[in-house]
Simulated assay, not measured.
Amino acid sequence: MNQVVMVPYPGRGHINPMLNLCRLLSSRLNRHTRTTIFTVVVTEEWLGFLNPEPDQDSIRFTTIPNVLPSELNRGSDMVGFMTAVQTKMEGPFVEVLDQTEFPVKLIIADATMRWPFGVANRRNVPVAAYWPMSASSFSVVYHVDLLESHHQLFANVSGVISQLYFQLIP
């Protein structure tokens, strides 16, 4: 049995697209035999929001503790929330990997989080970056330094964006 671990950024615009990808991959890979299990890792709070379908035997959910500020009021301190995502989820995620039933053959992680890539590299597990937003939004974030150097931004955000998004592989 193969296991793919899916790690979405804890936000609806990231989790829902990753679940769609998970369903698509599961239906294609498991068309004739159930040989691949997809394990989606979310916080306990997010599992309560999702209400997963019980009839999907090849898609499982596992949780990490609520180490982040609640989704219900994260907008009051967005930078604090984003910082917590980058600093507090790795430890519980490693514990989940240590307790998996089947060997992890692949990790698919949201590209906005850098720590899953380090975890995968340390464990010698292949990792794929998943970007759930449009290519144009990726290009803007990826090239924010150029936009800033050409005075096309009205705020100095390059330090924050590069720290939070694009230090993917340590």
Rank of each mutant, 00 (worst) to 15 (best):
L25M: 15
L25W: 08
S26Y: 11
S26W: 02
S27A: 09
R28C: 07
R28G: 01
L29M: 10
L29N: 01
N30V: 01
T33R: 05
T33D: 02
T35E: 14
T36S: 12
T36Y: 10
F38E: 00
V40I: 10
V40Q: 05
V42W: 01
V42I: 14
E45D: 13
E45V: 10
E45P: 13
W46G: 07
W46K: 07
L47Q: 14
L47H: 15
L47V: 14
G48M: 08
G48Q: 14
G48K: 12
F49E: 15
F49T: 02
F49C: 12
L50T: 05
N51K: 13
N51L: 15
N51H: 15
P52Q: 08
P52G: 09
E53F: 01
E53L: 13
P54F: 04
P54M: 07
P54R: 10
D55R: 09
D55M: 05
Q56T: 07
D57K: 11
S58Q: 05
S58D: 11
I59C: 11
F61N: 01
F61H: 06
T62Y: 07
T63A: 11
P65K: 04
P65E: 04
P65M: 07
P65C: 08
N66K: 02
V67M: 07
V67W: 02
L68F: 00
L68E: 03
P69G: 12
P69K: 08
P69F: 12
S70P: 00
S70V: 14
S70R: 03
S70W: 05
E71G: 12
E71H: 15
E71D: 05
E71Q: 14
L72P: 15
L72Q: 13
L72R: 00
N73V: 00
G75M: 02
G75W: 06
S76Q: 11
S76T: 10
S76D: 11
D77H: 14
D77S: 14
D77I: 15
M78W: 00
V79N: 03
G80L: 10
F81M: 06
F81W: 06
M82G: 06
M82H: 02
A84V: 05
V85F: 03
V85L: 03
V85E: 04
Q86F: 05
K88E: 13
M89V: 01
E90H: 13
E90K: 04
G91S: 10
F93L: 03
V94D: 03
E95K: 09
V96S: 08
L97Q: 13
L97V: 07
E101A: 15
F102P: 03
F102H: 13
P103C: 06
P103T: 12
V104Q: 09
V104M: 12
K105P: 06
L106Q: 07
I107L: 08
I108G: 02
I108W: 14
